[in-house]
Write a protein that binds this DNA or RNA. Structure first.
Lengths: 132, 132
DNA sequence: TGAATTTATTTACCTAGCTAAATAAATACT
DNA sequence: AGTATTTATTTAGCTAGGTAAATAAATTCA
């Protein structure tokens, strides 16, 4: 396997594992955090908006939202268009998000801090350059 | 979420999906390919050697090897040390690997070819720099 | 308006990683 | 030699992604 792919996949796995480790203290998984963060920034969203934004398929989001709902992090509200469900943060989530955000920012700083801002930009540029 | 993480995770998912798509014609998944390639380069290996090399946990490899065995790609042989199982490519795998390797090389070239060699090196350096 | 098509979500089931604990063989210790 | 510890593999069960197909509401169009 191409060393670039090998390195990329491995770092990706490594970072999600680290992220999950850090999120344990808040009883969250990284995928759940991604959704909460998304809702925090955009306000209530439909399922479709969420999966399009996060760039994953719809069933993954359905499952994650169901879990987040039973855990009390989000509410599912019927939209005007009766096909769609609107997902919103619960009061519980709104209360706890600042602390979680703080944890995450510290983690990200630790992980990415060894790169200069230019290196970070360069990294993203190189990532985007890779495609067909 | 930090844009670097977002971009990294997304590209990683995207590339494995592409890889799976390309491997469909050989009835393989990317994780299976990783193991076959590993055995192709190193010759027969124990399970522990494989998971340490690929940097995943043992149970993932056990499952993948079991599947590869029932599909006829690999053989599991008892080692001298009766605890360990040695995994080797089957004649079927040896016969088909060249064609698969060709497919993969073309795919990798397509994905990574838009980066110069220096950019590829730079990319790996930046990846490794990211840690705690 | 009624049928056909599109769109949003869900369900079922697959790969692919993880941890924790079980099993079995090898090694170390006294 | 016999017990305790370590090591290799497996099993069970979790998150997290994917596809394909089902369902139900909205939209299009003849």
């Amino acid at each position: 396997m191409n060393p670039i792919f090998h390195a990329l996949f491995q770092k990706s796995r490594y970072l999600t594992n680290c992220l999950n480790e850090v999120l344990k203290q808040h009883n969250l998984y990284s995928s759940q955090w991604a959704i909460l963060y998304c809702l925090h920034n955009h306000g209530p969203m439909t399922l479709t908006q969420i999966w399009k934004y996060l760039n994953v398929e719809a069933p993954s989001i359905t499952r994650a939202i169901t879990r987040l709902e039973t855990l009390g992090w989000v509410l599912r509200i019927d939209g005007e268009d009766k096909r769609e469900k609107i997902v919103a943060l619960s009061p519980y989530a709104k209360e706890h998000l600042p602390a979680i955000t703080k944890t995450i920012l510290a983690f990200e700083e630790e992980m990415v801090g060894s790169l200069t801002v230019e290196e970070q930009q360069q990294f993203i540029i190189l990532l985007e350059k890779m495609k067909g």
